[in-house]
Computed example of a mutant assay.
Amino acid sequence: MTSSTVSRVAIVTGGSRGIGRAVAERLAADGLAVTIVYRSNEQEADAVVEKIEAGGGQAIAVQADVADEEAIARAFDATEEAFGGVDVVVNSAGVMILSSIADFDLDVLDRMHRTNIRGTFVVDQQAARRVRNGGAIINFSTSVTKLGSPTYAGYAATKGAVDAISPVLAKELRGRDITVNAVAPGPTATELFLDGKDEETIDRLAKLNPMERLGTPEDIAEVVSFLAGPGRWINGQTVYVNGGMVH
């Protein structure tokens, strides 16, 4: 398949594992060519590309730190070279480190802010310049911004910034038919989330919502798919994807 036959093209940051991987695989299943941007998991990123290609889709993997504007510009360049343009950008790369405010390591706070705030801003900046008319930009927030759970202040603060960025960018792209939204998952059963948690903790988190289960990466990817495709009248919003978790 040549780039001329590709109808729509997506870039997914953090696409080598977890929710990002589910998003990349879902968008590929929807018929989009996909660029997976990864920071360090080259082997896992390549495995996602192989899986997408084995299913008849098109994908490439590009290494980049989302907070590095030159690296992200190169990722957009590589996507345009491979597939002819960019229509959808999904910012799912993120860092979550938990601690009370009193005990938080401020160097860790700076690192988390670099990825979650600067990284979102850098990727959105390239997206604003390069996404084709009729496209979609989807950032990642969190339901914890409303829940206010102890130890989540640093992380929730970074995602509160994402909630602020998305509607502003939506308005700045007036006239180009490009939607900008944020998706805010609740507790989701990724390897990263489950690691280090006992059964009691997992069960308690699962029961925060009336569906009484954890979300799956596929649950989140389904909403991203909608916002990336048919959901054209949702714009400038943070969409809570958490099974009705009480706030």
Rank of each mutant, 00 (worst) to 15 (best):
E199D: 02
G160I: 02
D203F: 02
I52F: 02
A64D: 01
K197Q: 05
G84E: 04
L27N: 00
K146Y: 12
S3G: 09
A54I: 02
Q237T: 13
V224C: 15
G14A: 08
E50V: 02
R111L: 15
V246D: 01
V162F: 10
L208E: 10
D87R: 04
A75L: 13
G236V: 14
E199I: 08
N116S: 10
V34K: 01
A127N: 09
M112W: 12
E53M: 01
I137K: 07
G135T: 14
T13K: 06
R213T: 04
Y155E: 08
A153L: 06
D110M: 08
E50Y: 02
A59N: 01
T151Y: 11
F226P: 10
E191I: 02
V144D: 05
A153H: 09
E218Y: 06
N116E: 02
V86M: 13
S166R: 05
E81T: 13
G236H: 03
S3K: 04
G154F: 14
V241T: 05
T2L: 15
A61K: 05
M245Y: 08
V34L: 11
G84Y: 02
V246G: 13
A153P: 13
E222L: 15
G231C: 11
L98P: 08
R26Q: 12
Y155T: 01
V246A: 11
A93H: 12
G160T: 06
L27E: 02
E70Q: 11
L194F: 08
D105G: 05
N91W: 10
A136M: 08
R129E: 02
F140W: 03
G215C: 12
T2K: 06
A102R: 13
R114F: 14
V168Y: 11
L192K: 03
I60W: 14
A45P: 00
V183G: 13
T179W: 11
P230A: 12
R8K: 11
V12T: 10
E212D: 14
A206L: 06
I72F: 11
I52R: 00
A73N: 06
E222Q: 10
L106G: 07
K197W: 10
G55A: 05
S40C: 15
K146R: 08
G119W: 08
E222M: 05
V131C: 13
S40I: 15
E44A: 07
Y155M: 01
L27H: 12
Q125V: 13
F193R: 13
G244V: 08
V162T: 09
T142I: 03
P150Y: 09
G84V: 00
P187V: 07
S100H: 11
S4R: 07
I178K: 00
Q126E: 10
H247I: 08
N242M: 04
F140T: 00
A164H: 14
S225A: 09
G55F: 12
D77C: 03
A75I: 07
V34P: 01
G215K: 09
D107A: 03
T120E: 15
Y240T: 13
E42L: 10
A157F: 01
V168D: 03
E212K: 04
S225R: 15
